[in-house]
Design a protein around this nucleic acid. Structure first.
Length: 878
RNA sequence: GGGCGUAUAGCUCAGCUGGUAGAGCAUCUGCCUUACAAGCAGGGGGUCAUAGGUUCGAGUCCUAUUGCGCCCACCA
């Protein structure tokens, strides 16, 4: 046969890059134009253009590629849309940082200058990212690559904004929002991360104007006291009942404020009295609204003190706090300082402390939009894998608050709202209007703010496919099949895509969401910049190859669980690839010597049928596992089958046939080797795309590329003559050979005669003589029906269908053999006892399903046979 | 304060609808047997966190407890 040639040494660097280039050039990643095929669409969770890919991306992309390649091979019209996200705040922070190093500020450049810089940044990092995704072997359609700020996608953003505004879902209003003093922008609730902080609870005495009574308040924020406009107590609190409605004097400020009653106050907490600072605390803000309290802001935009109290002007919160405490202490009104631990909000991008702030912002009213999105998951239109993330999702969606979508940033989609300088009317329009929609004045100006980066991400599954235009792609590929992402962005992204998809396209954006965990370092810690424990996937690829990286991120992983980076697993992956490489070398070498492949089942030997059967089962299970997103299990099965069954047994069994040119089944062996190896490679291809392609194309009769070959299919009708027997009998032979190797003192140089006592396996053993002798170190083989003429000093192997004796002169001591048999007997007894117990248990007999009872009976009988044979043997030795 | 995850061999982890505990690495013993020493053939090693319960039968289902981790929540 004509076959290709493999390099002698396996080295992934020899071919990975070239193969990818070839795939891309040939257009294999593009879906076919045949619209009668069923589409299978995945849109990539677009990596942020803030930097390069990390292990989390490698994991995410690997799983997507597994599915996309698998589905493509299964005959679906696979489309994987790649792209990147402008990541508004994250990118802007990075750019500003970099500018700072150069001594430039945003203001120096102005909006336009800054945006120019940002686009340059995008060009650089966006390019890097797509290069890296290619390195990972991802089969995405690069001709459809998208960026969240592309023209089409920006149009989608404006359209959605306008629609939601017209429907009344988007409004502008003055609310208490979260403000990041470092990024100078508002944040949504989801963008706040909470951290525990050790601080104090300061107890401060506020006294009556005439000093006749006083109230002690407890606070963690003494520096905000200048903005206090009341003290609140619980209406039922006996301690303070008489004081409600009276006033106290704010120390330092010497200003009278009222004592009010409000149920939100916890009697047990602190002193039971709380200072109310409506401008700087969400609770206080609400209380302020309820009681019509004035709102007094004490900070400027950067959260330094304003000029409310001149001597504090310009101080940051820390020093202001120090000074206030100091001053209060001097005034003798600081009653107590208590240690206290509480959580403080931080910005998810710059990690500085965030502050509540009253500000005019744009919001999306969420409650109604969330409802159908909740329903879609409840009724299974969108399925989460694993299911448990339903709860996280429901919890968030059912308690959802309005979404603050405006950001005081420059990098992003500018809000399509225009203010009239003459009549103050707001005109919202996806295309920039030239005059006010109410008074017609041409003196209008656009809102300075941009949108939350997640506003555009929420549209990603359909904006990438051309929506709002009814493009061919949108009509055919939408809704997408499966979203694969980390569980850490359920709120940010998944939830928002679901409600957006339903609202704007009338359909859920995807049917399945596969959640994976986080990649941790070898000690189980989160990889992070500050710890410096991040691992660069490209470095791993450089050292072990892409296939190995993908393997290590897949094997033994279950959906939704975090995984630990492990060098060992990478080595295991390399070993596996090397193993396949070598096995393939062997197969190719031998196929070269063969004239033709003989696929006639009548020429198949027992081991041929055995391996084809095993293959068939493996294919069936692997397909099932992949369909259920159990990639780790699927890969394990491919690994086990390829290494243990195919390489360790089948190839070894084949050798005598291959080496004997006269063997009538030699060509059949060639066929089976080619078939099984080919199917192993195909099964493995979605997981390890490169090595499988490199080998596959060398096999005789292979397709142009493994990528477009058919994924192996289980043949329900696979039923060779004597098929069941073949499987069973080969199993027996394997057990026999294992036992010999295990217990007998035989070597290639120390062979012995083999006497098989069996009737049912005569044919199989005769046919298998060649490899039995080789693998079991037999000199010659005799098969007989009974135990005549078996020498005393023979070792034996007993299975349920056969007994095997190997007579030795001096190799095995009779007493040693007796002891070995005794051990063997004990083990069988132990095994048998389990089934004896089951079958003698009236409960089991009465209630267990019949199949289980029969199974137990069969096993019991099998062990009984083995036991008898071993006892016979021991008796014979006496 | 709620919710979730996790606890299985020395290490890292699998184990689907309950039916004699698995893998990789590590360890020990033999082997350079013409595909492979990144390998081959074998061995040792687990009362599946603890306590109850359901069941003929539980690593697998239920309840409680403990350890570790995560998420959510406006107690100053």
């Amino acid at each position: 046969m004509k076959t290709g040639k493999l390099e002698d040494k396996f080295n992934p660097k020899d071919f990975e890059n070239d193969l990818y280039k070839n795939w891309e050039e040939k257009g294999y990643f593009k879906p076919s134009n045949d619209k009668t095929k069923i589409p299978y669409t995945i849109v990539i969770p677009p990596p942020n253009i803030t930097g390069k890919l990390h292990m989390g991306h490698a994991l995410d992309e690997t799983y997507q590629d597994i599915l996309i390649r698998y589905k493509r091979m299964c005959g679906f019209n696979s489309l994987w849309v790649p792209g990147t996200d402008h990541a508004a705040i994250a990118t802007e922070v990075k750019i500003v940082e970099k500018m700072k190093e150069e001594g430039i500020s945003k203001e120096d450049l102005g909006r336009e200058g800054f945006l120019k810089r940002a686009w340059e940044w995008k060009k650089e990092y966006g390019g890097t990212i797509s290069k890296q995704i290619r390195k990972l072997g991802c089969s995405c359609d690069w001709s459809r690559e998208r960026f969240t700020m592309d023209e089409g996608l920006s149009n989608a953003v404006n359209t959605v904004f306008e629609n939601l505004y017209n429907k009344g879902y988007i409004y502008r209003g003055k609310r208490m929002i979260t403000w990041c003093p470092s990024c100078h922008t508002s944040l949504s609730d989801a963008e706040v991360e909470y951290e525990d902080e050790d601080t104090h609870l300061w107890h401060i005495r506020y006294s009556a104007p005439d000093g006749s009574y006083s109230v002690v308040v407890a606070t963690t924020r003494p520096e905000t006291m200048f903005g206090d406009t009341a003290v609140a107590v619980h209406p039922d609190d006996e301690r303070y009942k008489g004081l409600i409605g009276k006033t106290v004097v704010l120390p330092i400020m010497n200003k009278e404020i009222p004592i009010i009653a409000d149920e939100f106050v916890e009697k047990e907490f602190g002193t039971g009295a709380v200072k109310i600072t409506p401008a700087h605390d969400p609770n206080d803000y609400e209380a302020g609204l309820r009681h019509n309290l004035p709102i007094i802001d004490v900070f400027d935009e950067e959260y330094n003190m304003n000029d409310l109290v001149p001597e504090y002007k310009g101080m940051d919160t820390i020093s202001a706090r120090k000074k206030v405490v100091d001053q209060l202490s001097k005034l003798g009104v600081l009653v107590k300082i208590e240690d206290y631990k509480h959580s403080v909000g931080t910005c998810y991008r710059c990690h500085s402390k965030v502050e509540p702030k009253i500000s005019e912002q744009w919001f999306v009213r969420m409650k109604e939009l969330a409802e159908p999105a909740i329903k879609a998951v409840k009724n299974g239109e969108v399925k989460f894998i694993p299911e448990r993330f339903d709860k996280t999702y429901f919890n968030w969606m059912e308690n959802i608050k309005d979404w603050c979508i405006s950001r005081q940033l420059w990098w992003g989609h500018r809000i399509p709202a225009y203010y009239c300088d003459d009549c103050n009317e707001i005109t919202v329009s996806k295309v920039a209007p030239d005059r006010c929609s109410r008074c017609g004045s041409s003196h209008i100006h656009q809102d300075e703010d941009t949108l939350d980066t997640w506003f555009s991400s929420a549209l990603w599954p359909f904006s990438t496919l051309g929506w709002p235009e009814q493009t061919e792609d949108f009509k055919y590929f939408y809704p997408t099949a499966t979203l694969i992402t980390g569980y850490d962005i359920i709120f940010f992204w998944v939830a928002r895509m679901i409600f957006s998809g339903i609202e704007h396209t009338g359909e859920v954006p995807f049917k399945n969401v596969l959640f994976h965990g986080i990649v941790r370092d070898s000690q189980g810690r989160k990889m992070s910049k500050s710890l410096g424990n991040g691992i660069d996937p490209l470095e791993v690829i450089d050292k072990y190859g892409t296939d190995a990286l993908r393997f290590s991120l897949t094997l033994g992983i279950s959906p939704g669980n975090d995984i630990r980076y492990s060098e060992e697993k990478l080595e295991a992956a390399g070993n596996f690839a090397n193993k396949i490489w070598n096995a393939s070398k062997f197969v190719l070498m031998n196929l070269e010597q063969i004239d033709e492949l003989d696929s006639n089942p009548e020429h198949f030997t027992y081991e041929d049928k055995w391996i084809l059967n095993k293959l068939n089962n493996t294919v069936k299970e692997v397909r099932n596992n992949i369909e259920n997103f159990d990639f780790g299990v699927a890969l394990q099965k491919i690994y086990d089958f390829t290494w243990d069954e195919f390489c360790d047994w089948y190839i070894e069994m084949c050798k005598p046939r291959l080496y004997n040119k006269e063997d009538a089944t030699r060509n059949a062996a060639g066929y089976v080797l080619n078939k099984v190896l080919g199917d192993c490679l195909k099964m493995l291809h979605p997981f390890m795309p490169f090595v499988t392609e490199q080998i596959y194309t060398k096999l005789p009769g292979s397709d142009e590329t493994i990528m477009l070959s058919d994924y192996p299919e289980a043949d329900e009708n696979i039923c060779f003559d004597r098929e069941e027997d073949a499987v069973e009998q080969i199993k027996e032979i394997i057990v026999g050979i294992r036992n010999i190797r295990n217990n007998m003192n035989v070597h290639p140089s120390r062979k012995a005669k083999m006497i098989f006592v069996t009737t049912s396996m005569k044919e199989a053993i005769t046919e298998s003589e060649g490899y039995i002798k080789k693998l079991g170190f037999g000199e010659e083989i005799h098969i007989q029906a009974n135990k005549e003429e078996i020498p005393q000093n023979a070792v034996s192997v007993v299975t349920s269908k056969m007994e095997l004796y190997m007579p030795f002169e001096d190799l095995v001591d009779l007493e040693e053999e007796r002891q070995r048999l005794e051990k063997e007997k004990e083990k069988i007894l132990k095994d048998k006892a389990i089934f004896d117990g089951m079958l003698s248990n009236p409960g089991f007999m009465a209630k267990a399903p019949e199949a289980k009872i029969n199974e137990a009976k069969e096993k019991q009988a099998k062990f009984a046979e083995m036991l008898k044979a071993i006892e016979d043997r021991m008796n014979g030795m006496k």
